[in-house]
């Protein structure tokens, strides 16, 4: 009984002194808050709060001692979320081979290219073996088709074009595709020709009614003043106003051409926005992730 009680006191003593022993002379890195498990827990929390930079700092600490592809993948995703596309691309590329995320990282690589507006490059590499995915989602191909549509490139025959999409995606895509073929462009040359015939008519054609009427009046009034001065033999004034008439007549033809170009750029911009909205809704054809505590 005596030995037992002695044994108990020793254990008790050690036990009670434990916190003090531990808390004395410790540097911050040995604090239990900085064990790899806790660093990762905290980092996951920061990541979920979209506090990416701080999350990266923690993840990097974690990766010094542990090997975890989920963490690497999340770092890349964070860069993508922050709009730092070049870094996102590099990080995704690092996971292409020998990782748990070979397919996912390629999918996200293509999504990032799309977000960064590198459409031509995206189309170019979509058939490259290095970038190809090996699953049934076909994300790179789908995004490449979408990019081709935006670039107004001839699409592959309709069968293979729609076959890789699922039913819902197919409906959205074919709607956009047919819409794209009916975009209400204005022809710049037509606009310029119209304004050559009747000053301002080209601007009416591009929908800038006020500008068209102003141009018509402007050229008309200047021309009339020039004509009037020629009749009255005020030759200097006559030539001055003739010059101005020519300048504004020409300027309006020029401006009509430009107005049609701007009109078309706006039509394109609206269409691209619509496509991006569709992609956003479909999450760029990528299934949502659930990392849990991996």
């Amino acid at each position: 009984m005596k030995t037992k009680s002695n044994y108990f006191s020793v254990v008790l003593f050690l036990f009670l002194s434990l916190p003090f022993v531990l808390s004395k002379g410790q540097s911050k890195n040995t604090s239990p808050l900085f064990t790899p498990v806790n660093i990762k827990k905290f980092a996951d929390y920061l990541f979920a709060e979209k506090d990416y930079l701080r999350a990266f700092d923690e993840y990097k600490k974690y990766l010094k001692t542990e090997n975890n592809d989920t963490v690497r993948f999340k770092i890349a995703l964070g860069f993508q979320q922050m709009g730092r596309y070049p870094e996102a691309l590099t990080h995704f590329k690092g996971l292409f081979f020998n990782s748990d995320f070979t397919n996912q990282s390629r999918n996200e690589f293509f999504k990032t290219l799309f977000l960064a507006d590198s459409l031509s490059y995206l189309i170019n590499i979509s058939n490259n073996e290095f970038f190809k995915t090996h699953d049934s989602l076909h994300v790179p191909l789908k995004l490449s088709f979408t990019a081709m549509m935006l670039q107004k490139m001839p699409l592959p025959d309709s069968v293979s074009f729609v076959n890789i999409f699922n039913k819902k995606e197919k409906a959205g895509m074919s709607e956009l595709y047919s819409k794209q073929r009916r975009l209400p462009y204005k022809d710049p040359t037509t606009a310029a020709l119209l304004s050559t015939v009747v000053p301002g008519l080209g601007k009416i054609y591009t929908g800038n009614y006020g500008d068209g009427i102003t141009a018509f009046l402007f050229t008309g009034v200047l021309g009339y003043i020039a004509y009037d001065n020629f009749r009255a033999n005020h030759s200097f004034r006559a030539w001055l106003f003739s010059g101005l008439t020519v300048l504004f007549y020409g300027g309006n033809i020029y401006g009509s051409y430009a107005a049609a170009q701007i009109f078309n750029a706006k039509v394109n911009f609206d269409f691209v926005s619509e496509v991006k909205k569709f992609l956003e809704k479909e999450n760029y054809f990528i299934p949502r992730y659930n990392f849990g505590s991996k």
Binding site: P19, L22, L33
Partner: peptide, 14 residues
């Protein structure tokens, strides 16, 4: 008791 005290120590240090 000890773990609480221990934890308090950690948080105070943090």
């Amino acid at each position: 008791l000890a773990t609480t005290a221990f934890a308090q120590g950690i948080f105070e240090r943090q």
